[in-house]
Design a protein around this nucleic acid. Structure first.
Lengths: 205, 205
DNA sequence: GGGATTATTGGACATTTGCGCAATAGCGTC
DNA sequence: GACGCTATTGCGCAAATGTCCAATAATCCC
């Protein structure tokens, strides 16, 4: 194995871990699998990570954190709260395609037994909720949305999305991706008092 | 160990498995733990179950199926769709108390790798959705609820509940049990065009 | 009471896991 | 070019896991 700068090596290990996690799930990810993916020895992983828990937490944070950042940046480019909300749904629904949602399922389940992972998933979920919450607050201020309790509404929109995605990932033929897209947007329209179609109809370009 | 009738023994094994699963989670449940819980040898478990997968699936079905039946029976006793919906929320929110929700989290995550478990969780989730759906259809027929798409609305109400519960179980200090109760009912009120408080206010007895 | 049936035992076995450690080898410095 | 630092190796270890099986003992039937 080529000798690497510690920082780069650490990144490479995290990337390899993420690849294995996406392929096999968090629970089935082992040090040896990561080493094979990396093309290195298993001892090397422990030279950079003190425990399996830390390794998994770091990889999950990298992946889920990047998704959040992508969506967050896209939302910022929305001209008004309604467009921001549309961008949010576009981005959130897309990021699911590459099985990122199975990682979240694993993370939530493993949170009970892996403290470091738990901390990260909690922090990221709160950040997602806050992102939605700020969009709603903007929308209410601008008179575009109706909402008595933006904090609760944001948790509901996030939980609805997660709950629907969960069905899609765990039981693919119960709920399809198209239904998740349609139903979650319709749910947000109802939640925020928006006219039917506000979030689903594409405006002509 | 007392020699038992095969049917009773099978039940005892399932009960013991369930106890271990609730204590440690599905992923951390081992044959030896179940044997200890049962006060018997590990070989006995394999005399009744051909594989670990079957054992776990059977125990999960017992637990989750019983919860569904309890709620279903309670809903049936509601005099009108609104009361049925209130009973539904009462029952669904209560059953969560004894960490039944962590089992669901594990089941959804493990579904990707355990075919038998996946089949059961899918079937039960569909049944939950149908239970809600029939309440909504009754409510619309009676002119008590407003809903253009009961199938979608039922999936939304179920997913919202699951998504909120998920946060409570995985990250207990993000969302509390009281908030799950309040926010999910408020969500259903909005979804079904019910006046604020319809599902939350207790009518004087 | 004796024999057949089978519930139950308890350990063997191969595999896998996370982790540690002494040895090796690549890189920078003088 | 020699030396020191450390990235990297690769095996060893103990613990845990699912599965299997020959031996044992309890129950039932005649």
């Amino acid at each position: 194995m080529v000798r690497m700068n510690p920082d780069d090596r650490r990144e490479a290990i995290i990337a390899a871990t993420l690849a294995v996690m996406q392929r096999q799930g968090i629970a089935a990810t082992t040090v040896r699998d990561v080493a094979t993916e990396l093309g290195a020895s298993s001892g090397l992983i422990h030279h950079y990570m003190t425990s399996m828990d830390e390794l998994i937490a770091a990889a999950f944070e990298r992946s889920a954190g990047a998704d959040l950042l992508t969506t967050s940046n896209l939302v910022e480019q929305g001209q008004d709260p309604l467009e921001q909300l549309r961008f949010f749904f576009d981005s959130y629904t897309r990021s699911d395609g590459d099985s990122g949602m199975q990682l979240w399922l694993d993370a939530w389940a493993e949170a009970a037994r892996r403290p470091e992972l738990r901390q990260i998933s909690q922090r990221l979920n709160k950040a997602w909720q806050q992102l939605i919450c700020s969009i709603i607050e903007g929308g209410v201020r601008a008179g575009l949305m109706t909402c008595l309790d933006p904090v609760a509404a944001a948790w509901r929109i996030l939980s609805l999305l997660d709950g629907l995605h969960l069905q899609e990932v765990a039981h693919s033929d119960s709920v399809t991706g198209a239904q998740v897209t349609k139903w979650s947007r319709r749910g947000a329209e109802i939640e925020l008092g928006l006219p039917l179609g506000t979030l689903t109809e594409r405006e002509p370009s």
